[in-house]
Design a binder for these strands. Structure first.
Lengths: 362, 362
DNA sequence: CTCGGTTATGACACCGATGTCATGACACCG
DNA sequence: CGGTGTCATGACATCGGTGTCATAACCGAG
């Protein structure tokens, strides 16, 4: 591979002049510049980032730690939206920054993280983004202070800068939209109650009810998933939870599920009970996992879990830190919109407006 | 960040001795070794791969070009299995090799590929794996001969080493398994006929028929997808194709679809015609995209598109090339098994065995 | 004509590893 | 005891860029 010296010799100038042509950081006579550029393209010269890194002590590399790539295959049993979307957001945001992304996959084994960090340190990455597969607390090994760290979809107890989904706001907005469609009995079949997301979202659910002056009925809120269940167990739990709310004296008119995958399963379960969607019962999911929400019939109403935006925000945050900006003192919360689908029916308003009776949601 | 000189000073030895400790390439007195190791951990010293790369002219980096990460989100309309699974296989295979993977995503724009290659060249990657999102011919810009190139899920006209799915074998095995279950009228609603995969698979379909002494009926083979359709068009095309084969004088007992996603849509369409799965009609997919095959009810019989294996094979091939082995003279074909699901019914054998009448497939 | 300032270029050192060669201390053998 | 080989270690150059400083050519003002 050609070096800057080869180019210099071919163009009959000093290496430093070639360097100036490459970086445009000092005036070069037009004629010399042409000769150098010709030599460069003739030799197919590409500067070595290793040499640059050595001299400048800046690698231009950003490290990314994730399990998104390896886990995507086995992710059939897991709960939610693939964290790959976060990676995607990061990728997009880094693209325009001139940095290069070094992706390391944990293969789902967190014990490999120290090794990955080590590799990043060897490559002198300027910053690291750690991506978790769902909203959770993490604990990473300490990293040399000259490497900036940002957590995406997770947080720790050392106030490391982090970017999180605004789960409370998401569920709040979703339930609010259901109420706007005339629903008053709103069931919530949540994910495992131990999850941060579940706590936040339940709070959002209650907040929306309170705001609308609706009473909170604990019978309508049923955890319908546990962490890392097998397929069979998941279906059983879900079946039971659905049965429980449907057989209440005053059953719900709409059921919210902890994620779109649960809702997808519910479509089958509800229909096997002879229910028509959304005529007899409305359904809402969470995540807006388009593969599901847009493919199902009717399309599924869902609150967006803004993973791509989280990735982008996390990257922007990291780039700012690298620029010397001060870290924020609390996690950055990213909100997402509600995507309406055909799975939620607009209910006739019992008293107020007779004109809307029988109208279907669009 | 500490350097080897800092460590040397702290341990009271020369940098070269520290280097020997790091690489274990020459004997070091036990006592010296201890002192050096202590200095290393005290200073948190991590060697710089940039400096190593400069000296040895070996970066230990492998470049990966793919659209898998960015395209996964928008991949709702696209046909098949996410190529991310290939990336995953590569990741896994590289893990044990001591190399580091540099992943560059095209963002779906092939015109960005030269830039990505340029970045890889700057980082002096030892090899590049190019991953295509479906079995196809590609044409990459030329790369300096000191960088080895391997194509995964694609091939070119310059005999670049490549690894491809064995589509013919896959469809052959699938149809063979259907015949084994007693099916004689087997429809094939394929992907776009312009695809390499479709040509290969159709050949495999015919091969299996011929082998079983069944006549090939062109009416039973209908292209039911075009390239990059919108959702609406895709559904219409599929609906029409299904209608066409079901209204034949002698309709099929089983329909094979070009991929699992088509089969997933077909579940809804077939049921809306009042058909029972698999009682009235059997269904088979292609890809074994587990998110679909295992979530559908009944689970979907599908031929596996061995993407992870393709990734692994491509990586192994590249590592061998880096080791100086000669490239193979033709593409490496990777076969996959058939994964039986509940969507294919075992037909009663009209004459042979009465005892199997009414028995369902497991 | 001379001087201060700009333009264009090169010499040289340095970034952090490691290969090469040299050196000193021993041990062993004849 | 001297020669030879092994062990343990260090001095120095080198990889490919770029920052610093020096230098030469040139220009216009006084």
């Amino acid at each position: 591979m050609a070096t800057i010296y080869d180019v210099a010799k071919a163009a009959g100038v000093s290496p430093k002049t070639v360097s100036r042509v490459l970086n445009g950081d000092a005036p070069v006579k037009k004629e010399t510049l042409d000769r150098v550029q010709q030599a460069i393209s003739q030799l197919g010269y590409v500067p070595s980032s290793a040499a640059r890194t050595m001299r400048s002590n800046k690698s231009g590399l950003i490290g990314l730690i994730t399990g998104a790539i390896s886990m995507n295959a086995n992710a059939i049993d897991t709960s939610g939206l693939p964290d790959l979307f976060i990676v995607q957001g990061i990728q997009k945001a880094i693209e325009s920054s001139g940095k290069t992304l070094l992706i390391a996959d944990t293969g789902g084994k967190t014990e490999r993280v120290p090794d990955l960090i080590r590799t990043f340190e060897e490559h002198r990455v300027e910053g690291i983004i750690y991506v978790a597969d769902f909203h959770q607390q993490v604990s990473l090994p300490r990293i040399g202070s000259d490497i900036k760290l940002v957590l995406a979809n997770c947080y720790d107890d050392r106030a490391t800068p982090s970017v999180l989904p605004h789960d409370r706001q998401g569920q709040y907005a979703l339930v609010r939209s259901l109420i706007a469609k005339g629903h008053r009995r709103i069931a919530y079949l949540s994910l495992s109650p131990n999850l941060d997301a579940t706590r936040e979202r339940t709070a959002g659910y209650r907040e929306a009810l309170t705001e609308a002056g609706l009473a909170f009925d604990p019978e309508l809120v049923v955890p319908a998933e546990i962490e890392s269940p097998d397929r069979e167990t998941a279906v059983q739990l879900l079946w039971d939870a659905i049965d429980r709310v449907l057989t209440l004296p005053e059953p719900p008119t709409v059921i919210c599920f902890g994620n779109d995958r649960m809702a997808m399963r519910a479509y089958g379960i509800l229909r096997s009970r002879g229910l028509n969607l959304p005529g007899d019962i409305s359904v809402a999911g969470y995540d807006n996992y388009r593969l599901i929400t847009e493919t199902l019939y009717p399309t599924l109403t869902s609150a967006e879990l803004p993973y791509a935006a989280i990735g982008i925000r996390a990257t922007q945050l990291l780039l700012k830190l690298l620029d010397g900006e001060a870290p924020p003192d609390k996690p950055i919360l990213v909100s997402g919109p509600v995507t309406p689908g055909g799975s939620v029916r607009e209910l006739p308003r019992p008293i107020t407006k007779l004109s809307t009776v029988g109208r279907k949601s669009t």
